[in-house]
Amino acid sequence: SAVVMEEGSPGEVPVLVEPPGLEDVEAALGMDRRTDAYSRSSSVSSQEEKSLHAEELVGRGIPIERVVSSEGGRPSVDLSFQPSQPLSKSSSSPELQTLQDILGDPGDKADVGRLSPEVKARSQSGTLDGESAAWSASGEDSRGQPEGPLPSSSPRSPSGLRPRGYTISDSAPSRRGKRVERDALKSRATASNAEKVPGINPSFVFLQLYHSPFFGDESNKPILLPNESQSFERSVQLLDQIPSYDTHKIAVLYVGEGQSNSELAILSNEHGSYRYTEFLTGLGRLIELKDCQPDKVYLGGLDVCGEDGQFTYCWHDDIMQAVFHIATLMPTKDVDKHRCDKKRHLGNDFVSIVYNDSGEDFKLGTIKGQFNFVHVIVTPLDYECNLVSLQCRKDMEGLVDTSVAKIVSDRNLPFVARQMALHANMASQVHHSRSNPTDIYPSKWIARLRHIKRLRQRICEEAAYSNPSLPLVHPPSHSKAPAQTPAEPTPGYEVGQRKRLISSVEDFTEFV
Rank of each mutant, 00 (worst) to 15 (best):
C292K: 10
E510A: 10
I250S: 01
S409A: 03
K453I: 15
I223M: 08
Q321F: 10
H432R: 06
P380G: 01
V430E: 03
K290Q: 10
I353H: 00
D439M: 08
S443T: 14
D361Q: 08
P482R: 13
P475M: 14
K453T: 15
K368G: 14
F508L: 14
V416T: 04
P491R: 11
Q230L: 11
A487T: 10
P486G: 12
G359M: 04
L422H: 02
A447T: 14
W445M: 08
L286T: 06
P475C: 15
E218P: 06
H474T: 14
D401R: 03
P331S: 06
N386E: 00
G300K: 13
N261Q: 10
V335W: 12
P475V: 10
D291W: 06
T277H: 12
V323K: 11
D217G: 07
K249F: 15
K499Y: 09
G309E: 10
V351M: 01
C314A: 12
F279N: 00
T509F: 05
V473R: 13
C460T: 14
D303F: 02
Q321T: 13
D382Y: 02
V378L: 06
L346G: 05
T277I: 05
S273T: 04
N372Y: 04
G282R: 04
W315M: 05
R458W: 15
V374K: 01
L253W: 08
V252L: 03
A405Y: 11
C385M: 05
V408Q: 00
L470E: 15
R418G: 08
S262M: 03
G306E: 13
S235C: 15
H338V: 11
F508K: 15
Y313D: 04
L329C: 05
N467D: 14
A463V: 11
D240K: 04
N261M: 07
Y355F: 04
P475T: 14
Y355W: 03
N386G: 05
L455Y: 12
V430N: 03
F311A: 06
R275Y: 00
E462W: 08
I353R: 00
D439S: 09
A405K: 11
M396S: 02
A481Q: 13
P489G: 11
E233S: 09
E270Q: 06
K453S: 08
G272Q: 02
G398M: 09
L299R: 14
G282K: 04
H478G: 15
L449M: 12
T332S: 15
P331I: 03
H432K: 05
D246H: 06
Q419N: 10
K342R: 06
L286H: 07
V252N: 00
P482M: 11
G258N: 10
F279H: 00
D295E: 11
V297Q: 15
A464S: 09
K249I: 06
K480D: 15
E488R: 12
Q484T: 13
T402R: 07
K296V: 06
N372M: 14
G284A: 05
K480Q: 14
Q457L: 07
R234Q: 14
H345L: 12
Y274G: 08
R450W: 05
T509R: 07
A487G: 10
P414Y: 00
G309S: 14
K394N: 10
G282F: 01
K444G: 15
V323Y: 14
D217P: 15
G398V: 08
N348L: 10
S504F: 07
I459V: 14
R448I: 04
V297A: 15
I367F: 09
I287V: 11
G365T: 11
V404Y: 07
V304L: 13
K337D: 15
D246W: 06
I377E: 04
K394F: 10
C292G: 15
T485R: 10
N269Q: 02
V505D: 14
Y441T: 14
D357A: 03
T490V: 13
S479A: 13
E397Y: 08
A417V: 11
Q321M: 13
E397G: 08
V297S: 15
L239W: 08
E233Y: 08
N269A: 03
N425D: 11
Q230A: 12
G300F: 03
E510W: 05
G256R: 03
V354P: 00
D240P: 05
S244L: 13
H375S: 15
V388G: 00
S477C: 11
G365A: 11
V388I: 12
Q391L: 07
H316L: 06
A481V: 13
S403C: 07
E510C: 14
Y276M: 00
V495F: 13
L264S: 11
F373Y: 15
V430L: 06
E233R: 13
L224E: 15
V430G: 02
D217A: 08
L390F: 08
D349W: 03
L289S: 15
D439T: 11
P294F: 13
K394Y: 11
D410Q: 01
H451M: 14
C340S: 14
V404Q: 08
Q391M: 12
F350Y: 05
E488T: 10
S443E: 09
R450C: 06
P414S: 12
V473Q: 15
M426S: 01
F311T: 05
F362I: 07
L390I: 06
V335H: 10
I223E: 10
A265G: 07
G300Q: 12
L302A: 15
H325M: 05
T438N: 11
L364Y: 15
L329M: 07
N220G: 14
H338M: 13
M320N: 14
